[in-house]
Simulated assay, not measured.
Amino acid sequence: MVELLGRHCEYPDCNTLDFLPVYCIHCSKTFCKRHGSAPDHSCLSLLQTNSINSSNSPSLLPCAYTDGCKNQKSPISFTCSLCLKNYCVEHRHVDDHKCSYRSPSPPTHHSSQINKNEIRTTENFSKEKFIGTKNEALANKVAIMKLKQTAKGPAGIPMENRLHVFVQIDDGDGNNKRYPFYLSKLWPLGKGLDYLIKELKLLPANRIILLDREQILLDLSATINDLKELHDADVIILKKI
């Protein structure tokens, strides 16, 4: 039996057989020529090393959310703009660390109509800002790279055309589980909604898409790439009306 030469690229969704593979000294993985450099395969090991080396403090900031958090020694931290405590990437949002200063959740609607006044629109939308975070851009990049490794979507969409998001279903049952997906930036958002309903095996129902935290109603007729308020690693909610 002839032994195969070369190695398969370890970058997610690639797996190309390369006869001159590139070995990354940071993460100890093997990649094809296209994903050989650390930036091309979004090397998490290099990002974390740079974060530690660039920190002015030799100690790692623990996440203030202690209820089951596994990132108590994270080299990257966010400071909540409300309670001013430090949190890891996973618990950086006010809802994720159950911030005591957050606004109360809107009441659950049992009627078939949703109150439009309770939905934030893009006109009064302002992005949440994190203060005191030296490595905010780096932390966001790490979070996006982790999402890209687990996200599910059509294999035929090129990497540069993918928008990676967390999807949450709001059927009024209190289920807050989030599912990692990617959609094509060239799709109308309505097509993305149809795809998610099919993949998540949801029962037929009229649904809208809200952007989490600010409860922004997104336009289903707009192309995803034209929705400037929607970014990688955002949480979108499929709400039944």
Rank of each mutant, 00 (worst) to 15 (best):
N135P: 00
Q149I: 00
R162K: 15
F181D: 00
L203K: 15
I119G: 00
S112D: 12
E214S: 15
C88E: 01
T66V: 09
A137Y: 02
K73Y: 06
I236E: 00
P188R: 14
E123R: 11
L4D: 07
I224H: 03
H41M: 06
K33H: 12
I208P: 02
C27R: 07
H35E: 04
R213K: 13
L84T: 13
S184K: 04
E229Q: 12
D219K: 10
Y87P: 01
H35D: 05
R178C: 11
L84M: 13
G153T: 04
H109W: 03
D232N: 15
L60G: 01
C80G: 02
N115Q: 14
R178Y: 04
A151H: 06
K85M: 03
V142M: 08
K70W: 08
H35W: 10
H231E: 09
S74F: 00
H26E: 14
E128P: 15
Q149T: 03
T108F: 14
I224E: 01
P104S: 11
S54V: 02
M145E: 15
V165E: 01
V142C: 04
H164P: 01
L193M: 15
C80P: 04
K98A: 06
I25V: 12
V142Q: 07
P62I: 00
F166A: 03
L147S: 06
Q72E: 06
K177E: 10
I144L: 13
G132K: 01
S103R: 14
G132E: 01
N71Y: 11
L186S: 15
Y182Q: 02
V2S: 13
T30L: 11
S81N: 13
H164V: 02
S100W: 08
P104F: 12
H41N: 09
L218P: 03
L230S: 04
M1W: 07
L193G: 01
A151I: 02
K239T: 05
S221Y: 08
P158E: 11
